[in-house]
């Protein structure tokens, strides 16, 4: 464990806290993409199948359960719970996620760390996580302006994988024969998708004023 990875996990947890607060206290899922939340639920449920046999640390196992529980709760609330479910707009949040799931599934089958079913599913979840934010970014693009809490949510989510990139660099230079090419590639793509958002987020928060984030 190193500071980058720890801060990355804390940033990821923060993103869950912000989103859960927003939809439970704010009683609204406006501006939040259910599609992205569904993809994250698939990512965590598929990646953390090894919860039952890969016990690398209590920290890991605990957070795996937390991530599966939170992502599932978020999907449940936005899909089924009133009044949140009425604030979800299927016309706006209509990114064809089958075009994300399909290619990631094929990539997981072809490019993975071993030919076992779990390794293929694991690789699939890594690739899917890299593109899971797309429906959310498209929804924000359509709306032009980003609600304050939502902007902090997306920023925390982007920072989490960005900090993981630093963690991988750190581990590469401090551990011998440390290789994680699949997550390195996917993590780079994932963080790259946030670059544009980060630029607008920084511009809007720079003056210390909480001017709303505007996406062109």
């Amino acid at each position: 464990m190193n500071i980058f990875r720890f801060l990355g996990d804390m940033s990821h947890i923060l993103s869950f806290v912000i989103l859960l607060l927003k939809i439970t206290q704010g009683k609204s899922a406006a501006g939040i993409s259910l599609r992205t939340q569904e993809l994250y639920m698939i990512v965590f449920c598929s990646r953390y199948l090894d919860l039952f046999w890969n016990f690398s640390s209590l920290y890991n196992s605990f957070l795996k359960v937390v991530f599966i529980a939170c992502s599932s709760a978020i999907v449940y609330i936005i899909r089924f719970k009133s009044p949140q479910k009425d604030t979800w707009n299927p016309e706006l949040d209509n990114f064809p996620i089958q075009y994300l799931i399909g290619p990631c599934a094929v990539a997981g089958l072809l490019i993975n760390q071993d030919w076992t079913p779990f390794e293929m599913i694991w690789a699939f979840s890594i690739y899917l996580e890299a593109v899971a934010i797309l429906p959310q970014l498209f929804l924000l693009q359509k709306q032009g302006e980003v609600e304050n809490l939502t902007s902090h949510y997306v920023a925390a989510l982007g920072a989490y994988r960005g900090l993981y990139l630093m963690n991988w660099v750190y581990r590469y230079f401090t551990e011998d024969d440390y290789l994680q090419r699949i997550v390195w590639f996917a993590g780079t793509v994932q963080t790259g998708l946030y670059i544009d958002f980060f630029y607008h987020y920084y511009q809007s928060k720079r003056g210390g004023l909480s001017r709303p984030v505007k996406l062109p």
Binding site: R5, H12, N54, N112, Q113, L179, Q180
Partner: peptide, 10 residues
Amino acid sequence: LMADAPKDEL
């Protein structure tokens, strides 16, 4: 395929 490091990360 690519026997990378064991999965010790989230």
